[in-house]
């Protein structure tokens, strides 16, 4: 799987949003901004805007929900990867996936 091609999808939110939370919001974000662009044959890197300083586990679970329902949790994580340039946000995402799952 490491040799999968990569494509980037940049998420966009209102400028006043600095935190991402809510299972429903995660699901809605996936449908509105990711679903139409995702290629399951590639690794899809979902870029979280730099202004976002915190990502709640509920948002992570929500954004992965449809993919994990369709392809299973492991495959969903292979297909899609959340990414932020902020190390502390990456830590929170990784923690959320490790502890709470998707």
């Amino acid at each position: 799987m490491n040799c999968m091609a990569k494509q980037q999808i940049q998420l966009q939110f209102e400028k006043i949003i600095t935190n991402l939370a809510g299972n429903r919001f995660g699901r809605d974000t996936y449908i509105a901004q990711v679903k139409g662009k995702i290629d399951i044959e590639e690794k899809n890197i979902i870029e979280i805007p730099e202004i976002i300083e915190d990502v709640a586990s509920s948002f992570v679970q929500g954004i992965y929900r449809e993919l994990s329902e369709q392809y299973g949790k492991e495959r969903a994580l292979e297909i899609m990867e959340l990414h932020s340039v902020r190390p502390e946000v990456m830590e929170k995402i990784e923690y959320a996936i490790r502890v709470y799952g998707i």
């Binding site: 939110f13 006043i16 949003i17 919001f25």
Partner: peptide
Amino acid sequence: LKGDGVSKLLGDLK
């Protein structure tokens, strides 16, 4: 509470 409402709430609470 739909859309980004909960995200805004989280920011306000912090």
